[in-house]
């Protein structure tokens, strides 16, 4: 198979167990060429476990991970750039020594590109990694990840510890790489970064994939239908089990239904309850995220289920 037909990053029925604890359960995710996939999830949702197995730092309990259609080998890193959550850098080596190490290891290492990136992030190459600040540490990892001009990038929290200017620079690098045809998987706690850079978003909760789609299609389908009533909210007539509605929140005379598709249809149905008015509200990716991972019981004390 040639490179254009192969799926660059394919995760198939991947499960990882640590003892009795299942960190990731039956995750299947194919990342298309040229796509930027944002992996979101609260702490402990399985993101880092997924990244570790993708990069060969841990083995799947079952299922498979394939990069360009094949299991990981040392040669894969000629075209795969990565930033792991916990540093893979050596504390006792300087930045310059890391660059030299990569120059000797990878044929694809581009010293000019590396120098540009060092300049961009103002990395002090003379310092030992152990003496670098959190932000400089991340910046050095970014420099190493991008200095081979990789066509696949796997980045776990690639902007953590960076100031807003450098965070934007990391996003620009990711976007530039994708515009040149690279495939990117990255995670971030800053949903706004995913909202900008990603065309695809996958949300994990308790090791399970609970949302997967393009950012634009999610925004097109996930809505709040809000109804305001003159009097008490009437009996909801089985609205709570409507498959189009993921949860219902009541607050005084206001009813809000979080809808995953067909908001117009839900609005018509709620309109039959004769509210004073009904409106359909747009959601940001952050709203969609909170709604998807939020603890339903805690988030809606007056909820109907």
């Amino acid at each position: 198979m040639n490179a254009t037909q192969t799926i660059p990053v394919a995760i198939t029925d991947f499960t990882k167990r640590y003892g009795a604890q299942e960190a990731v359960s039956n995750l299947t995710l194919d990342i298309e060429r040229g796509s930027i996939c944002g992996l979101l999830g609260p702490n402990g949702s399985g993101k880092t476990t997924t990244f570790k197995c993708l990069l060969g730092f841990a083995r799947p309990t079952s299922g498979s991970m394939a990069i360009e259609g094949a299991p990981l080998t040392p040669a894969t890193f000629e075209y795969l750039g990565y930033v792991p959550e916990r540093s893979a850098l050596y504390e006792w080596m300087t930045g310059a020594q890391h660059l030299e190490f990569n120059r000797r290891t990878f044929k694809s290492y581009d010293p000019k590109r590396a120098a540009e990136l060092v300049d961009l992030f103002k990395v002090d190459l003379k310092k030992r990694v152990g003496k670098l600040s959190k932000g400089q540490h991340t910046a050095l990892a970014i420099v190493l990840a991008f200095s081979t001009r990789p066509r696949i990038l796997i980045l776990d929290e690639p902007a953590s510890g960076l100031d807003p200017m450098f965070q934007r620079a990391v996003l620009d690098l990711i976007i530039e790489a994708a515009a040149n045809g690279a495939t990117v998987v990255f995670s971030s706690h800053q949903i706004g970064q995913v909202e900008r850079a990603a065309d695809r978003v996958a949300i994990l909760k308790n090791g399970k994939l609970i949302v997967d789609g393009t950012v634009d299609s999610l925004k097109g389908s996930e809505k709040i239908v809000e109804a305001i009533f003159d009097q008490m909210i009437p009996d909801l007539n089985g609205l709570a089990v409507d498959p189009r509605i993921s949860r219902i929140v009541r607050s005084g005379r206001i009813l809000r239904a979080y809808v995953n598709h067909d908001s117009e249809g839900v609005a018509r149905r709620i309109n039959e309850l004769a509210p004073k008015n009904v409106s359909i509200l747009d959601l940001s990716l952050e709203d969609i995220f909170i709604n998807a991972v939020g603890d339903v019981a805690a988030a809606s004390p007056n909820g109907d289920r």
Binding site: A179, R196, V215
Partner: peptide, 18 residues
């Protein structure tokens, strides 16, 4: 170009292409 606008707005290139 798609790439220039994506970088200018810091948004996904596929979004601009679409």
């Amino acid at each position: 170009t798609v790439k220039a606008l994506a970088l200018d707005l810091t948004i996904n290139p596929n979004t601009v292409a679409r």
